[in-house]
Design a protein around this nucleic acid. Structure first.
Lengths: 225, 225
DNA sequence: CCCGATCTCCACCCATGGGTCCAGGTGCCA
DNA sequence: TGGCACCTGGACCCATGGGTGGAGATCGGG
């Protein structure tokens, strides 16, 4: 997720769009950024897979509507065969099916075509770094979809954890929920294993958690993991 | 959304975190970016509102858990009174309530504390440009929440587990997922604890499960618990 | 009739987890 | 200037978990 030195790494990008009138100028303008190198252009999903297989690629800038193999399918296959390649979707459509389909297939970014050059380059850099960049409207749709179902769905949701848990205790619980052993938690938080155990003892007592397995369940239940 | 010229505009940023040990170095390191200027530091939500009211501000980097007024409430009020100010959340927690709460209150970005300097500065620039930047885990949670409701997903039972698990191994896994210790599992199945351990060893190997915590997660994921 | 899969159980070993008690340091607030 | 909450850490103890190797019993199918 994090990198220490400046964005010095050269990002190898594949541009995929079935319309040459979009693809060519896009590739040209991206090449202007000195940390981005457009290593291939593709006009459908299978060409993307071929290009990625041919050489090292960091990010694919992907249109969704393409003949032969569409962008969602290509994204899905990339995730299976080349999980280290990040996909940023660039399309004119921002309907729920496209958004959920693409992100569900593993896309890290989703831009609409009113995004500017800066927006696109930024999304490419973010995706390469493991972040996700969405256009505002996309974000809003995604959020709206998520919110219609999540809130107030059951009585056990909100107060599943006592309120008097400390910051540190919550962090520890979250990491337990992610399956880390005490040593791993200690390393992650830059504290000693003894301290981790102290936090665990305290939070187990406060939240009435019996053991680690119970803690994992509670963490997942509370959405911490 | 788009801007044509390079990122020449100086971004005025407010850093909000109740822990000075986090706030101070964060503000310092952000000032290193030549297009970012930290114009204020705040230790709770009301200080954020005061700082924004005092001078022109482009982006607020906001912690969630703060005394007096928390980050979500502050974000909500900023949206009402200063809709042009973008909020990027930077917190240690990535639970559903926090994510949906913050984004629902209008935050444009959501980062966890394992984000590096580049990640944070990128998110600030994106937010100022109207984009949304999320950490990968945050994006995954948001997507998972959105997907559980949107598509008609029927009973998705055991596809996440290998098919060659025996009946007994599945039973044991389910009981692990319910938080039972080996002795409890043994009693439940009327077998000895030694046998339970044997099953556990076998199923861990088959399903590539590392330890009990991992098993709990897998069991829940597979719908066994 | 033997083979293989499954279930059952044992002994042994060591790492990890969970509990207890204690104590120093910090920062905040009355 | 106290007290208090929180984070940090150490020592110690014992229970549990996880791994290895082996072994006997049952049952079904080739």
């Amino acid at each position: 997720m994090s990198e220490q030195s400046a964005e010095s790494k050269q990002l190898r990008v594949v541009v995929a769009d079935d319309q040459a009138a979009v693809r060519e100028p896009l590739a040209a303008v991206l090449g202007l950024a000195d940390d981005i190198e457009v290593v291939a252009a593709a006009s459908d999903g299978s060409e993307v897979l071929a290009a990625v297989a041919a050489g090292p690629v960091d990010v694919v800038l992907m249109d969704l509507r393409m003949p032969v193999m569409d962008g969602i399918e290509a994204t899905r296959r990339l995730g299976e065969e080349f999980p280290d390649v990040a996909v940023v979707v660039l399309t004119t459509f921002a309907d729920d099916d496209s958004i959920l389909g693409a992100l569900g297939a593993g896309a890290r970014g989703y831009l609409t075509k009113n995004a500017g050059r800066q927006d696109i380059t930024r999304a490419i850099r973010a995706a390469a770094a493991g972040q996700s960049v969405l256009d505002r409207e996309v974000q809003d749709r995604l959020l709206a979809t998520a919110r219609t179902k999540a809130p107030a769905q059951g009585p056990q949701q909100g107060q599943s954890l006592p309120a008097d848990l400390t910051r540190r205790e919550r962090e520890v619980l979250a990491l337990i929920g992610q399956g880390l052993p005490n040593r791993g938690i200690a390393e992650r938080l830059f504290i000693s294993e003894a301290t981790v155990k102290t936090h665990i003892n305290n939070l187990f007592a406060k939240a009435d958690i019996r053991d680690r397995a119970d803690a994992v369940r509670r963490a997942i239940e509370a959405g911490l993991a």
